[in-house]
Design a protein around this nucleic acid. Structure first.
Length: 313
DNA sequence: ATGGTTTTTACTGCGTC
DNA sequence: GACGCGGTAAAAACCAT
């Protein structure tokens, strides 16, 4: 129970989140940010342990849309100007039918767009819930999704994929990024499709998304590993020094964050194995090994750090 | 498509509890 | 012996061109 509480940290200010009313609403003690936790909606009631099963069990998804016209509840008004028994209609009746067809069509497309949007927003809600993302992120994600929809980016891609991508983009824009793996884990589409969709909408919508700062991952990983404040601060320092030395170019921010935490734990004599970090950060222990040495090296060479060392001792 | 870079996978030996 | 750690080589993934 205690462990659980520690896992919930305010994405804005790192304050502790408190479940105040048992209604699935959680607030941050420091900044008052209201966050909905994963308790509210639990996603599908079924479990899928591998992709094949997921496809089989999932009852939503785009493949059905191809068939919607015939399988759905909607029926279409035929194009032939004949009545049910095959008699040709009068001019007047034909005009009426024409008008009806027009409206029928409008109604149908409008309906499908709305259904589409509704489903997508539901997905976004569900996913951001289980990722612990705050409300504003969902708003941004919905906006991005709507833009994608308006720009006709949907055809040929699944609703879920675009919705997932929109959420990912929103989180990164807001500086509260989740790793690709984390997002993929709660999405109904597989990682490949999700990444494809992400690149696609970023390109087509000209979204400006800065590469994530490794520091943005530090606090989350640190609290997941229940590390001390000091270690976390040291990790941040290490990353800043690394940044000055341009050590990060080309490296994955997640890997760097993980390495920084490990290195920091070493410096503060906190018990933390490479494996521990690699599990929560979802990077290999090799990556951590390769990075943390560089980080420590840059750290020892950095003058600012030397000063700090001197002050400390 | 290609090439260069990073990350992962898999396997290794070493020291410690 | 299991575990944590470190190194390595080859494969895979990623990115810009």
């Amino acid at each position: 129970m205690q462990k659980r509480e520690e896992a919930y940290v305010c994405p804005e200010c790192r304050g502790r989140l408190v479940d105040d009313d048992g209604h699935g609403e959680t607030t941050c003690v420091d900044c008052g940010l209201v966050v909905r936790t994963g308790e509210t909606d639990r996603g599908p009631e079924w479990h899928a342990y591998e992709q094949a099963e997921r496809v089989q069990k999932s009852r939503v998804g785009s493949p059905m849309t191809n068939m919607m016209h015939d399988k759905g509840l909607s029926s279409q008004i035929g194009w032939q100007n004949r009545d049910a028994s095959g008699n040709v209609l009068s001019t007047r009746q034909r005009m009426t039918m024409h008008r009806l067809r027009t409206w029928d069509e409008r109604f149908r497309t409008r309906n499908s767009k709305e259904r589409n949007l509704k489903q997508a927003l539901g997905e976004i809600d569900r996913m951001s819930s289980s990722l612990g993302l705050p409300e504003p992120i969902r708003e941004t994600a919905s906006v991005i999704y709507r833009r994608a929809l308006a720009s006709d980016l949907l055809p040929g891609r699944s609703i879920e994929a675009i919705a997932t991508a929109a959420l990912h983009a929103a989180a990164r824009q807001a500086g509260i990024p989740r790793t690709v793996d984390e997002v993929a884990a709660v999405s109904r589409v597989d990682e490949m499709e999700f990444k494809r969709a992400y690149r696609y909408i970023v390109r087509e919508l000209h979204l400006e998304i800065a590469p994530p700062d490794p520091e943005q991952y530090v606090s989350r990983f640190a609290s997941e590993l229940s590390l001390s404040e000091e270690t976390e601060i040291r990790a941040r320092e290490l990353l800043r020094i690394a940044e000055e030395n341009e050590l990060q170019s080309g490296k994955s921010p997640v890997g760097l964050a993980a390495a920084a935490l490990y290195a920091a734990a070493l410096l503060t004599d906190e018990k933390l194995t490479q494996d521990d970090v690699s599990v929560v950060a979802d990077v290999s222990s090799v990556t951590i090994r390769n990075h943390y040495r560089e980080l420590l090296e840059a750290d020892s060479k950095s003058p600012s750090m030397d000063n700090e060392r001197l002050q400390r001792y």
